[in-house]
Design a protein around this nucleic acid. Sequence first.
DNA 1: GAAATCTTGACTATTTTAGTTGGGAAAGTA
DNA 2: TACTTTCCCAACTAAAATAGTCAAGATTTC
Lengths: 161, 161
Amino acid sequence: MKLTTKGRYAVTAMLDLALHYGEGPITLADIAQRQGISLSYLEQLFSRLRRQSLVASVRGPGGGYSLGKEAREIFIGEVISAVDENMDTTKCHGAHNCQNNERCLTHDLWSDLSNQIYTYLNNISLQDLMDRKAVREVADRQEHGDVDASLVDQLGTPAGV
Amino acid sequence: MKLTTKGRYAVTAMLDLALHYGEGPITLADIAQRQGISLSYLEQLFSRLRRQSLVASVRGPGGGYSLGKEAREIFIGEVISAVDENMDTTKCHGAHNCQNNERCLTHDLWSDLSNQIYTYLNNISLQDLMDRKAVREVADRQEHGDVDASLVDQLGTPAGV
DNA sequence: GAAATCTTGACTATTTTAGTTGGGAAAGTA
DNA sequence: TACTTTCCCAACTAAAATAGTCAAGATTTC
Ligand code: FES
Ligand code: FES
């Protein structure tokens, strides 16, 4: 299995969209700033998300992206798959042929593990995440705390501010 | 999370050791041939497994490796960790600091997923795998069927054999 | 028509993977 | 002792993947 920043960013960005539902289309620039993700990299990811109809786009000023269906109907596993990270942990990718064209000693172990992961991630929707207290707290911080909140926390409140 | 051939090979090799328990030390050359893994690559992996006391070694003719403790007491998660593949899926590796030194929007999701995987793999022992019918079947094939069994299966029984 | 936004494709530096190469050191066997 | 078998170790490497950047263009709004 592969789980890298690509998949993590995709889920984070989708969750950001979900959290700002009702504010009209959200620009990638907004998401990039709020979540600390490179804009051009986000563009690549949203290209894939759009092809899977997980998001809808509007061009021009005032444009941006919105969810392709309800937050309750978008599952984390879908999002990760959409950006091409596959959750399969077998070497043969399900073909039972990784040793001399036959099943290797550990195929079933990885296959079972993959099912575990698959089931887990496909039962959590964006809405489920939004309902979590910890997520709301971070979202609030991103709304108000702004860019350097963490630095302020670290260094104490500067005299001149 | 990272699960590549490194971790898969390590588990496969350990399972091979477990299956040949009682035959004295098993050489890496044997494992390499049976499981189709590069000998030098196995050496690297066993170096790490030995440092974690998951295997014990005997040098010289008649030497080889054996399990460091009972198959019932060696868990898959341990083996994977020993070869340095970490099962953590968070970006911050547990530090809650991946966005401006604070927790990102999705930290808990990855943290929970990591726990799932961790729990799953740490509750399966080598003995559990050995007890599986499918594993015994593959092990039998590796004992008798030998190197080109699969090719014979594919091409039909050659006339001259 | 200018600006904002999405859309696409090609390019790239860095890191990781999956090894290889080449040298040793210990132990048994003749 | 010489020889062979095995483990042990460190350095090197080709190929792939990652996490982007860069440049050009298409739509839409004002
Ligand atoms: S992982 Fe499927 S046959 Fe080896
Ligand atoms: S993954 Fe831990 S803070 Fe982002």
